[in-house]
Computed example of a mutant assay.
Amino acid sequence: MNIANCRGCGRLFNVLANEQYCPNCQKKLDEKFDIVKKFVEDNPNVPVETVAKETDTTLRQINKWIREERLSFSPDSAYGIPCENCGKTIHTGRFCDECKRKLSNTLRSALDTPPKKENTSWTSADRERMRYIK
């Protein structure tokens, strides 16, 4: 059983799957997220500073929700965050579409490489010798 201090209130709680907040603080955060999401849906072109001020939420928390792809701003919105790889302005997530594609292709090619085959061809002198199984 793992026990940790809640990042919100500081109380001890049982950690089940790498949580950082106790159930009470997590519930409050989820309620706050619903308020922010509704505000952004109702006012799509409002600056993020206004969203934070009107919903009484920190910019850091809003940016965290954007990075987690839980919250996104419209493509015509002036607000954006930088791609973690190239720095291009994006509206949600951690990487732009081009960097996602490059990372996906790199991972796919790393997984698809065929294993190296051992050289099993023997010369005429090797055919007459005793061989050992490796």
Rank of each mutant, 00 (worst) to 15 (best):
N2Q: 10
I3Q: 11
A4D: 05
N5A: 09
R7K: 15
R7Q: 14
G8M: 07
C9R: 01
C9H: 03
C9M: 04
G10F: 06
G10R: 05
G10P: 07
G10E: 07
G10N: 08
G10I: 02
R11S: 12
R11P: 04
L12I: 04
N14F: 15
V15D: 02
L16S: 14
L16Q: 15
L16Y: 13
E19H: 15
E19P: 14
E19T: 13
Q20H: 14
Y21H: 15
Y21R: 15
Y21V: 11
C22Q: 02
P23M: 02
N24F: 14
N24D: 14
C25L: 03
Q26V: 09
Q26D: 09
K27S: 12
K27F: 02
K27P: 02
K28D: 07
D30C: 08
E31K: 14
E31P: 05
E31Q: 13
K32T: 06
D34W: 11
D34V: 10
K37S: 13
K38H: 08
V40R: 05
V40L: 05
D42M: 15
N43M: 06
P44F: 03
P44L: 01
P44D: 03
N45P: 05
N45Q: 06
V46S: 07
V46F: 07
P47V: 06
E49C: 02
T55H: 06
D56Q: 15
D56V: 13
T57K: 11
I62Q: 02
N63L: 04
N63R: 14
N63D: 07
W65Y: 09
W65C: 01
I66S: 09
R67K: 15
E68Y: 11
E69C: 02
R70E: 12
L71W: 14
L71M: 12
L71G: 07
L71N: 11
S72L: 13
F73I: 04
S74L: 10
S77I: 08
A78M: 10
Y79T: 09
G80Q: 11
G80V: 04
I81Q: 10
C83V: 10
C83K: 00
E84Q: 10
C86D: 00
C86S: 02
C86K: 00
C86M: 01
G87S: 00
T89F: 10
T89P: 12
T89N: 14
I90C: 04
I90F: 08
I90P: 09
G93S: 07
G93C: 07
C96N: 10
K100L: 08
L103I: 05
S104W: 02
L107V: 01
S109Y: 02
D112R: 05
P114Q: 00
P115H: 01
K117G: 04
K117Y: 03
E118L: 03
N119Q: 03
N119M: 02
S121D: 11
S121P: 08
W122P: 01
W122I: 01
W122T: 00
T123S: 09
T123L: 00
T123H: 00
S124R: 06
A125Q: 07
R127H: 08
E128N: 11
M130A: 11
M130V: 11
M130Y: 04
R131C: 00
R131N: 01
K134S: 11
